[in-house]
Every structure is written in C-alpha cells, then in structure tokens.
Design a protein around this nucleic acid. Structure first.
Lengths: 124, 124
DNA sequence: CTAAACTTGATAACAATTCTCATTTTATTT
DNA sequence: AAATAAAATGAGAATTGTTATCAAGTTTAG
C-alpha cells in the first residue's frame, strides 16, 4: 500500500467521527470539507484500510456497511428506531472468540456481533 | 397473514435445507422442483416469515442475506474460503443478550452473531 | 356467495457497491 | 533529478441483491 493523500484524509475523517458512519455519510462529510474525493476512491480505500486491519467494516447493521476506526474487540448495538449505533464492551462475553474456536476447531479470524432493539432515548 | 400455497412451499423447502441458504439458492432449488415461484414472491415471503419470527434472516455473512429455519438462539460461522455456514451453540456465551441488556439499559430484541475464519475442512 | 383483504408473477426501479480505463501520483532505480 | 514501474484516482458505467408497482388471481369472514 503506497501513501496516498486521499487515504489519509479518509482515515482522519473516520477517526474524527464518533459515530460509526456509512460510506455515504463519510462522502457527505468529505464533500462539505471541500475534499474532491470520488465515491469509488472512498469505497476502495475503506476496503483497503479494513483489509489491512487499520479500520473495521461492520456488517449486519443495515443494508449498507458501517466503518469503525476502533479495531479493539467490541460489539455493536443498533437502535431499530433512530438507527444510532452504540458500542458494547467485549466484557459481556469474555473469551468469546476463544470459546467458539475451542467448540468448533475452526480458525476464527474475526467476528461481527450486532444486537438490535430500542435504545434508552427512544424507549422514553 | 393469510394462508398461501407459495409460502408453504418456501417454508418447507427452507426446512429441508440443512444449509443456511440465500434467496438465490432457494430460488434455484424451487425451480428444479418445478415450482413456478417468482423471485419477488420468494423475497416477499422470506421477509414475512422472518418478521413473524417463523424463520430468521441472517445478516452480516456476505453481501446477500441467508435464511435459517432454526430460530433458537445460536450463532454462526462462515468459512472465508468455502463460504459454508456452520452453527455455533449459544453455550459459548451464556446469557449474552441478558448481559448486554444489563450493561446498556437498552431493550434488545435480537442479535446477529457471526464469526468468520477458516473451517476444519479448508484448514487441511 | 360476495366483498374486502391478501397474495402473486412479471418486470421495472432502486440502492449499495464494484469495475473499467485513461490519467495522475508515488516509489524505485539510475 | 530523469526514467520507469507500481499504485491510486475520478468519472461514470455496470453489477448485484432486493424492493416497488400493478393488474390479475386467491383466500377468508360474514
């Protein structure tokens, strides 16, 4: 992977975002800050960054993928009403990957763990 | 939900499938058994069945959704090489949903828990 | 038996993502 | 720093999975 200005901007924009944005959301943010990054370049770089373990692609949330700059093991919750994505500590299931590996005998390289329901705000 | 012949066929076909098929896979199976079920009807019914809790739609595996006739709590593993989908017992993380609920205070209605890596067969 | 509600098939439409390809940037070798 | 190879880019076309539309057929309750 060579250095590229665009990739740097994309990564920084993702890092500045507390939420877990979709490509489309990032694209809008980038456009507003006058970056002339094309949608293809955005997708290409998000995929590359994820393949290199620098960011994490979160699937299973909605029809579109979300991206997370936090690669430490943790899970996600999406509110079915407001669609906000929250982090859940990996402490709720200690050694989850290890145990799954023991049970199956498979080599586990990653996991996508997503809960959905209604968040506190929407429950009011 | 009214009775419908098509829905019955779709549900039975899904039940007979030990794998966790995609809509496309099911469509092929149905065509081979001379069912004249249109793709739209298939998708419509899979969604309805899932909404009514009769089957489960599994997201986060691949670009397309998979469907599971087993609605008891359990997790999934997809082999990145052969793309086969395996079940993982919920025992690897007892009370996962309950704990996540306690930690967050959110109402959790469901979860998609997917591990990926290389299965035993492909590891040989 | 009739009317209202539901379901269907065929196909168009859609949204998210990837591909193509000519041009530009970055890295490497001299 | 010039030449060359390798990687990245932008723009838009293409692809994939899924949903919407709508006229016609089916199911169900009264």
């Amino acid at each position: 992977m060579n250095y590229s200005k665009q990739r740097e901007i994309i990564l920084n924009t993702l890092k500045e975002n507390v939420v877990h944005p979709t490509a489309e959301y990032l694209y809008d943010v980038l456009k507003k800050s006058n970056s002339t990054i094309s949608l293809a370049t955005l997708y290409r770089n998000l995929n590359q960054l994820a393949e290199n373990g620098i960011i994490k692609k979160i699937d299973g949330l909605e029809s579109s993928s979300h991206y997370d700059h936090n690669t430490h093991e943790h899970y996600h919750f999406i509110c079915d009403k407001c669609k906000k994505v929250y982090d859940i500590s990996a402490d709720v299931a200690p050694d989850l990957v290890k145990k799954a590996q023991e049970e199956t005998g498979f080599t586990i390289n990653g996991s996508d763990i997503v809960f959905h329901g209604i968040c506190k705000d929407c429950n009011k």
